[in-house]
């Protein structure tokens, strides 16, 4: 049964990241919606742990790319090398040819490298020396970035932030969770595990979740509000409304429903739209949340 599947799954993940069920659900939603995830947080908050856990859970090929300011696109995508034995050029695929990539500290790399990764995310293929190499399916990138106010960062431009389906941040765990983490460190339950095929199947089924006119109208009202009301530095693009629907479908799916409710949209709305609404030059620690304001001013029920 799907229901028990997801409960077990979320429970298993929750053993790795304690006290963060909402973020775990969002990450899973993002994966099922075939989008990419951006995690913004301070170092040491469990970004890497979460991606490790996800990879292990679905038995995905996993690689971690540590972004630094001197990382070149070829370091990541791979390069064509001369093989002296066969007197031939062979392509050596880089770490990007994996099913789950952890692009760690993505905003430490130079813009050139950043855009190389984001391009492969969008196209799901890599072109080197005129040859196109498809990336594996499923292909899921978890980018992590440090808050932009930290030194040595190149903030991702708005156009590239848009490529990430969701942006979440984990935040500090609460007292109980951290205490539990410190006392049973190392005890992890890896009995729950799923195949890659299962994941692909779910991804296909997410696409079939029903979104009624009322739900689509609600999404349209939200994005229109952001375009016509003063006070929003960036309006939501059609790409954003597509992402919103996709994420809401996945959210409905992991809650064992075959149709989307306005509540699903509300649940994913902040994660999907906040990084698109906020101008890159604005500090993220500001207290007014643009997406929260949108949610509060749009009636989910009107026909």
């Amino acid at each position: 049964m799907i229901r028990s599947d997801f409960d077990a799954l979320i429970g298993a993940l929750g053993k790795h990241i304690l006290g963060k069920p909402q973020q775990i659900k969002l990450a899973l939603t993002c994966m099922l919606a075939q989008g990419h995830l951006l995690i913004e947080d301070l170092p040491g908050m469990g970004k890497t742990t979460l991606s490790h856990a996800l990879a292990r859970l679905f038995n995905l090929d996993y690689s971690r790319i540590q972004f630094t300011s001197d990382l070149l696109p070829s370091d990541m995508l791979g390069a064509t090398i001369f093989n002296a034995q066969t007197q031939d050029f062979v392509f050596r695929p880089g770490p990007v040819f994996n099913q789950l990539i952890l692009a760690d500290e993505i905003n430490r790399a130079s813009p050139k490298t950043q855009s190389a990764l984001l391009e492969s995310m969008e196209e799901q293929q890599v072109s080197i020396d005129g040859t196109t190499y498809p990336l594996p399916t499923p292909f899921f990138v978890i980018g992590t970035q440090n808050p932009t106010f930290q030194s040595g960062t190149y903030p991702l431009p708005e156009s590239q932030l848009d490529r990430f389906l969701m942006k979440i941040s984990l935040g500090y765990p609460d007292w109980e969770a951290e205490k539990a983490m410190l006392s049973d460190a190392g005890i992890k339950d890896d009995t729950v595990s799923y195949s890659v095929e299962q994941l692909c199947d779910w991804q296909q089924r997410v696409k079939k979740v029903h979104a009624s006119d009322a739900v689509i109208n609600y999404i349209l009202r939200l994005v229109t509000m952001s375009r016509t009301t003063p006070g929003f530095p960036h309006a939501l693009s059609p790409r954003a409304s597509k992402a919103l629907l996709q994420a809401a479908r996945a959210w409905a799916f992991i809650h064992n429903r075959d149709h989307v409710l306005p509540d699903d949209i509300q649940a994913v709305f902040v994660a999907v739209s906040e990084h698109r609404l906020r101008a890159s030059y604005q500090d993220t620690d500001e207290d007014t949340s643009f997406s929260q304001r949108l949610l509060e001013s749009v009636d989910p029920l009107a026909a």
Partner: peptide
């Protein structure tokens, strides 16, 4: 929209009786 009319008339009624307004919440 007839359905919305039914829902709104009911929620307006409930608001009046209980003092709790719907204010852009979903039905659930």
């Amino acid at each position: 929209d007839e359905i919305q009319r039914l829902y709104d008339s009911l929620s307006a009624r409930l608001h009046k009786l209980t003092g709790v307004e719907r204010a852009n919440l979903s039905a659930r």
